[in-house]
Amino acid sequence: MARGIQVLALIVITGWLLLVPCVAVAQDMALKDVLIEGEDWQLVGEGFAFTEGPAVDSNGNLYFTDVFRAKIYRLDAQGKPEMFVDQSYGTNGMMFGPDGRLYGCQNAKKRIVAYDSAGKDTAIAEDVNSNDIVVVRSGALYFTDPEHHQVWYVSPKGEKRVVDTGLGYPNGIRLWPDQGTLVVADMKGPNLWAYRVEANGDLKFKQPYYTMRLAPDKTDSAADGLTIDSAGRVYVATRLGLQMFDPTGRLCGVIASPQKAWLSNVVFAGPKLDTLYVTCSNKVYKRKVKATVFRYFDPAGK
């Protein structure tokens, strides 16, 4: 590079560094920044009773549950569902942990379990109601307990305690990419709640940070599962569709549900982690988008 161009580049770059912090306007993120023109939902699998718990392993493979029939499936090399666990005891929300095991809310046995690669389960917490779960990089985990309006924490040593109470129906639960903020969906209310995650697992500074769009005749969002992409955008399954928020909590828009049925949960999966997978009642769908995720076990997810 010529010396003059170098100097010019330096001038422009340093100028930007000086000015950018002065601009208080947050970046606008529209649906068109994520959706691809011409890409629609594609059917991945059907004939289930009630699909839930979409989870992605370290290779980008999708796992999901059929809660009512107590099965866990994964997609084979051809992208077709194959049985992974044929008696899941009603396992609902799921997420892979940094140890490669699949953690799940095994409700019929009132426990949180971890499945190994052969589908064998080990209890992580017992005598608990649960709906959805998020695993922390440290190996700790949080899960929602809608029946008792509370959120639980399980330390890496396996000690469990309640860390939040009071939401109408805490359901979906995920962490920001840097794991410093926890987001919990209230199915009975209009908000997703944000909490600061303390080093000991406690939750602080609870706030109705995200406000969802509601159906005209409803006061509840029916918010279920959620996921958060690498840019900090939140995607939450609701009665009106998949609602997307920017990292400052502003609604970006509502992505249409693939069918008129209960939209229960969402995850990014696929080899490039650039495909949204949703569980929607009896079917599972996917849609390629212009967004991706850090997984909590990725070094980049810091």
Partner: peptide, 20 residues
């Protein structure tokens, strides 16, 4: 809302405070 750890992102409250 400052982050609890240095490698984490603070929660920006401008939109929540001003736009609601």
């Amino acid at each position: 809302i400052p982050a609890a750890a240095t490698d984490q992102t603070p929660r920006q409250n401008r939109s929540f405070e001003y736009d609601t």
